[in-house]
Design a protein around this nucleic acid. Structure first.
Length: 261
DNA sequence: ATGACCAGTCTAACTGGA
């Protein structure tokens, strides 16, 4: 099965591009982030017509995640990690959804950006990462085949960014962000794209500003994490880089991992 | 060398992104 992750930056603005990508690459499971719509605005019918069944966890204006599955409905297990947003009394943001598809546990997440740092948004990012680690430890203990995907908003290594200097002050590559990510990996998860690209230079995001795409000024923040049970079944993983160059593109491009059935 | 975007929202500047 092939599991893909795509931060689409608005499902309404991106719908034609999204359907095109689904038709052209036909992933078994497609995990979406930043759908930027409330639950009632999610275009489930559009995906049903293409043979995809979906679950989603929306929110007004920002954030929001969804899981699409080819043919079979994802069996939702959990939504949310129970971490309130950084503003007083705002409650929880829609950043986490978890489901079973064909015996594989799928975790789809949109990790907080954390800028500006230091500050409450950065504290929120680290708090969220600590809660994520706890949940992922439970999943490791269950020994169920599990794949964790999404926009982690963490640049893991210096060779995962076009310029260390330009990004040095960014929340995405602060030592605290990287350490929190490494702690999760060290519990037993395999970063599929990192493993297959040890020398780096593979980007999943290019800013809309400053001609970043044309200059190839990008970085790797969309990740595919495999539990030991799915790491043993790893066939390949990659980045659908070409979609970043199309009209009305998201600033992220899709990533995917294939595991043996 | 410098500046440069985009989506969503209480449709005009805001917030938020990374």
């Amino acid at each position: 099965m092939r599991i893909a992750s795509f931060n689409i930056n608005g499902i309404k603005a991106r719908l034609p591009r999204l359907k095109e990508w689904l038709e052209e690459t036909r992933p078994t499971v497609a995990c979406l982030q930043e759908i930027k719509t409330q639950d009632e605005g999610f275009p489930a019918d559009e995906f049903e017509e293409m043979g995809y069944k979906a679950i989603w966890h929306g929110q007004k204006s920002f954030n929001g995640v969804a899981i699409l599955s080819d043919g079979t409905a994802p069996e939702e297990v959990r939504r949310g990690l129970g971490v309130d947003g950084p503003k007083e009394g705002e409650g929880e943001q829609s950043r986490y959804i978890e489901a079973d598809v064909n015996g594989v546990r799928i975790v789809n997440l949109y990790l907080p950006n954390g800028n500006p740092q230091p500050g409450p948004k950065f504290d929120y990012k680290l708090e969220w990462m600590a809660a994520l680690r706890e949940r992922l430890q439970e999943l490791l203990a269950s020994e169920q085949p599990t794949v964790v995907v999404g926009d982690f908003n963490v640049i893991p290594r210096d060779n995962d960014v076009w310029s260390v200097k330009a990004m040095a002050g960014d929340a995405l590559m602060q030592p605290e962000s990287r350490e929190a990510y490494t702690r999760i990996l060290n519990d037993g998860w395999t970063d599929a794209l990192g493993l297959l690209n040890p020398r780096g230079g593979v980007w999943t995001y290019w800013d809309y500003q400053a001609g970043a795409w044309q200059r190839d000024h990008g970085f790797r923040i969309d990740h595919l994490l495999l539990s030991p049970q799915t790491a043993d079944r790893l066939v390949s993983a990659g980045v659908d880089r070409e979609y970043r160059g199309r009209e009305k593109a998201s600033d992220h491009t899709p990533v995917w991992v294939e595991i043996r059935d």
